[in-house]
């Protein structure tokens, strides 16, 4: 087999595929964070815990109630969104007028409590969760082997990300969301129920995290710490893309996954730090992020 840039194509494409899959998760998670930050002004540190909850709801549903993967893919985000909505209505709502720091501390505390209780009951070792039969196996594309489930992750997250982007940028509901992000008081003065819009937006952002959690369950093991491991990188992605930019969150998520994958091929030692290096460079050159608006 011919070599590509000095590496066997299987290695190069294999790592690019892994990068794209990680990027899909970065995109889904940073999209949810961006939407929540835009309207609520809350840096949702519970996002990783909510991603983990999505995976656990799917796992518990399968284990105890026999709920299959496809149902969980819808049901788990709904369940976790309901929990998120309860959190918003009882706690977050009181903090909108305060500094960002209060929301950050509250959601960070919640994340610790949720993760702590799950570690107490389930331990830190992962629980196995197998992909549905339809998505098992894979195809040999000639230059690489493509497992079906991994292809599904990329397709599903692209559909959800660009569907969300379309909803926000091209529909009436999205116009309310954009207007509410800019000037909630005036939107309210036009007769829109802004508190309800805020609640639903938080619910949707949380549902995105839970959806990513269910997608991740079959390839990463279902563990209470799966979210906190990922969240730090996702925050770096959000900072690189520009806080609050919807399009920026999606594109940067995918891009950072790919960069990470490429680094694994060319200089594996830096693969876990490369995103943070990019973050530092972006912050130095464009403090508002690649897609952010200068304040």
């Amino acid at each position: 087999m011919a070599e590509l840039l000095g590496f066997p194509p299987q290695v190069l494409f294999g790592q690019l595929l892994i990068g794209l899959i990680n990027g899909s998760f970065y995109a889904l998670l940073s999209l949810g964070l961006a939407i929540i930050f835009g309207l609520l002004n809350i840096i949702n540190f519970a996002h990783g815990a909510q991603y983990m909850l999505g995976a656990f709801v799917a796992w518990l549903g399968l284990k105890f109630l026999g709920v299959n993967y496809w149902v969980s893919l819808i049901l788990a985000p709904v369940v976790v969104a309901a929990i998120g909505i309860a959190i918003e209505k009882t706690m977050l709502r009181r903090l909108y007028k305060e500094d960002h720091l209060y929301g950050l501390l509250l959601t960070f505390g919640l994340a610790l409590i949720i993760e702590g209780s799950f570690i107490h009951f389930f331990g830190v070792s992962g629980q196995p969760f197998s992909a549905p039969e339809l998505l098992q196996g894979g195809n040999n594309l000639g230059f690489m082997f493509l497992p079906t489930y991994r292809a599904w992750i990329i397709v599903a997250s692209l559909i959800i990300c660009f569907g969300t982007w379309y909803m926000i940028e091209r529909t009436k509901l999205g116009a309310y969301l954009r207007a509410g992000t800019e000037n909630p008081q005036l939107l309210q003065a036009f007769g829109i129920n802004v508190p309800l819009l805020i609640t639903l937006t938080y619910g949707y952002g949380v549902a995105l995290a839970a959806f990513a959690g269910v997608l991740a369950a079959p390839i990463y093991s279902v563990s209470p710490v799966m979210g906190s491991n990922l969240l730090i990188v996702v925050f770096a992605v959000v900072v690189i893309g520009g806080m609050g930019s919807i399009f920026g969150a999606i594109v940067t998520g995918l891009l950072m996954g790919l960069i990470e994958g490429l680094t694994k091929v060319f200089y594996p030692e830096a693969s876990t730090t490369v995103i943070f290096l990019v973050m530092i460079i972006v912050l130095l050159i464009r403090p508002a992020g690649l897609f952010g608006k200068e304040a």
Partner: peptide
Amino acid sequence: SLNVEENLMLP
């Protein structure tokens, strides 16, 4: 973040 027509149709 809204174009003229979206602004018009918002309320």
